[in-house]
Design a protein around this nucleic acid. Structure first.
Length: 488
RNA sequence: GGUCUCUUGGCCGAGUGGUUAGGCACCGGUCUGCAAAACCGUCUACUCCAGUUCGAAUCUGGAAGAGACCUCCA
């Protein structure tokens, strides 16, 4: 089966056909850097990381662009026209760029911990003001924008009248929208409430501002993605991704901007990840019910019973399909943690297996084949994981001496785990560290002492050592062949 | 109010018109000085009502509940 995935534009799965193979251009809406990354940010980070990894795995040359939004995105619920970063900067009395820089670094650190690969290009909105102004000019020249009191607005009604396209992505009927759009501050300058800002004149107190032909101000909500995707991927590229909550108005408006500036839509495939919920509600800034990634890693949030490692978070997210909502709970995370541990222990055990000439290949190839089919069918990572667990059972049976595997089968096992668990799902073994040789030496030394106690049938001493080691996170397993241990 | 989506066993979560998803938890067994791990086995499903069909959790219609978007949001 060829790679196919769900295109929000057509509302169905489509075979993936890049414009210019083997090259693929992918643009994903990144974070607005005015606060710490939360669990919700991990989802698109990981979803598009998987797509990036898989496209590379099957041989494409992917240019992956993920922006950093460090200007724009007006905040409507408070001081009109002041943008988020400027507002935060005023509160903390620092330069806006200081805020943006600080949270950009924090975001990247969190993504690194989740083993999310860095994109090919990470452009910032503030670094592309000139490109954005150029697009405003194009849209003005095409007649689909108007200047009003130093600001420039996109004329949604005219666009829709001429193209019938406003709502094409989000399935909205513009006539309905006109009746339901709320009254907001600063709407007086617009011809129509549905119009959106391409360029906004800065009020005197607004501290982030750039010169333009229309006013000193800043670019509108949706412009940066149009400008930066066109600059780095071309006016037409392959995949545009982001969270489902960006579908409207953000992505709908991007389409409108592209059609007016370039004469066509920006991308062939629109991909949206679903939300992470908490107690059934979307986790988000506005609801103030989010848990930051740092809190998850430290276990410091009031809703957390314990800390969860970055790989646990990653595995938790991959156990659900990216287009389903995923509900956060301690029970679900604990289940993910235990499952991941079992998976990684089996992976470590592969190196202990020696092939037998009279063994079978145990048909590991079929698991590899099924895993590929699952990825090709809309990046179905939960199915891939279920195949990996099938392999776990096989590995454990071999270690138990209940099955024998030949060298071909063993090679296939290594391929399955290295490719699918490692390269594609991006799950790495967090136990492997520089300290391991030292830890190994120490633990083995202690286990020698325990072995002596056991030979003397000094069970009290033996158990004491086992319990004390458990307290510091070293778990002992006695078996017929001797003792083995692992870090918790 | 408008548009859209969802409702799977104790929990999380896949999925196809007829065949075991998977993980976690629970229970029984094997192993063990004990424990843990592992292995073997068992048990819990498809919100409700009606229809199409030889057969539907999967298709159609209706009901109830939940959620998303309509305003910045991943």
């Amino acid at each position: 089966m060829e790679l196919q995935f769900y295109n929000t534009l057509s509302r169905k799965k489509e075979i993936f056909q890049p414009i210019n193979p083997p090259h693929v251009g992918m643009y994903v809406c990144g974070p607005t850097v005015y606060g710490d990354a939360h669990l919700g940010h991990a989802r698109p980070g990981i979803t598009f990381d998987i797509i990036f990894r898989y496209l590379n795995f099957i041989g494409y040359k992917v240019r992956y662009v993920r922006n950093i939004t460090d200007v724009g995105h007006l905040e409507n619920d408070s001081d009109d026209g002041e943008d988020k970063i400027a507002k935060k900067a005023r509160l903390e009395e620092v330069e806006p760029m200081e805020i943006a820089q600080f949270y950009t670094m924090r975001y990247l650190q969190a993504m690194d911990m989740l083993n999310v690969l860095r994109p090919s290009i990470q452009p910032t909105a503030s670094g592309h003001i000139i490109e954005q102004i150029e697009i405003v000019k194009k849209i003005l020249d095409a007649g689909y924008a108007y200047v009003s009191k130093g600001s420039v607005y996109f004329d949604v009604l005219k666009y829709h009248k001429d193209t019938q396209k406003y709502g094409i992505l989000s399935n909205r009927v513009i006539e309905d929208m006109l009746q339901t759009t709320r009254e907001l501050d600063g709407q007086d300058d617009k011809n129509n409430p549905a119009d959106f800002a391409l360029w906004k004149k800065a009020e005197p107190e607004h501290i982030m501002r750039w010169p333009s032909p229309w006013s000193e101000g800043f670019p509108g909500w949706h412009l940066e993605c149009t400008a930066m995707s066109a600059k780095y991927l071309g006016e037409k590229f392959d995949i545009h991704g982001g969270g489902l909550d960006l579908l409207f108005p953000h992505h709908e408006s991007e389409i409108a901007q592209s059609v007016c500036a370039f004469g066509h839509q920006p991308t062939n495939y629109w991909v949206h990840n679903n939300m992470i919920t908490i107690e059934g509600k979307k986790m988000g800034k506005s609801l103030n019910n989010f848990i930051t990634l740092e809190e998850l890693f430290n276990g410091t949030h009031r809703l957390l019973k314990k800390a969860y490692s970055p790989m646990t978070i990653r595995f938790f997210i991959l156990q659900a399909h990216y287009r389903s909502t995923l509900d956060f709970s301690n029970d679900a995370l604990t289940a993910a943690e235990k499952g991941l541990k079992r998976l990684l222990e089996a992976q470590r055990n592969i190196s202990k297996i020696s092939p037998k000439a009279d063994g079978s290949d145990l048909n590991i190839k079929s698991l590899i084949e099924s895993s590929m089919q699952a990825m090709n069918d809309d990046f179905n990572t939960p199915i891939v994981i279920s195949h990996l667990f099938s392999a776990v059972s096989i590995i454990n049976s071999i270690v138990d001496g209940k099955e024998k595997i030949n060298s071909q089968g063993l090679e296939d096992l290594k391929t399955l785990f290295n490719s699918y668990l490692g390269d594609i799902l991006g799950i790495k073994d967090e136990q492997v560290s520089d300290m391991m040789p030292t830890v190994e030496g120490l633990v083995n030394l202690i286990l020698d002492v325990r072995k002596q106690a056991r030979e003397e049938k000094n069970w009290a001493k033996s158990d004491e050592i086992r319990d004390k080691l458990a307290e510091v996170g070293v778990k002992i397993k006695d078996s017929k062949d001797g003792v083995s241990w692992s870090l918790e």
